[in-house]
Amino acid sequence: MELKELYVTASLAQLDLSDEEAETLSALVGQMVEYFSTMREIDVENLEPTTHALLKTNRVREDAVVESAAADTLVGNAPESEGRFIVIPNVL
């Protein structure tokens, strides 16, 4: 994989790569991309395209409220909270 493309992908994944890491990863990611090009060679001429690995469809849920008992615990697990808000570094 080209280094430039790797850096774009890394920044989308919020990864900060050092030059060395980029160098190593470039080869490894290149190999992964390679697998896909191998898969692309398979003849799919007479196959219906699928949208999902599981062929079953239509698992829906009735529109009924179930109160989450975990809300307090979940907020409590945040590294920092104030009142009921979760506090994070300023993002503006």
Binding site: R84, F85, I86, V87, P89, N90, V91
Partner: peptide
């Protein structure tokens, strides 16, 4: 100024 508050 150093913080943001998140409500989910």
């Amino acid at each position: 100024a150093n913080a943001s508050y998140v409500d989910f």
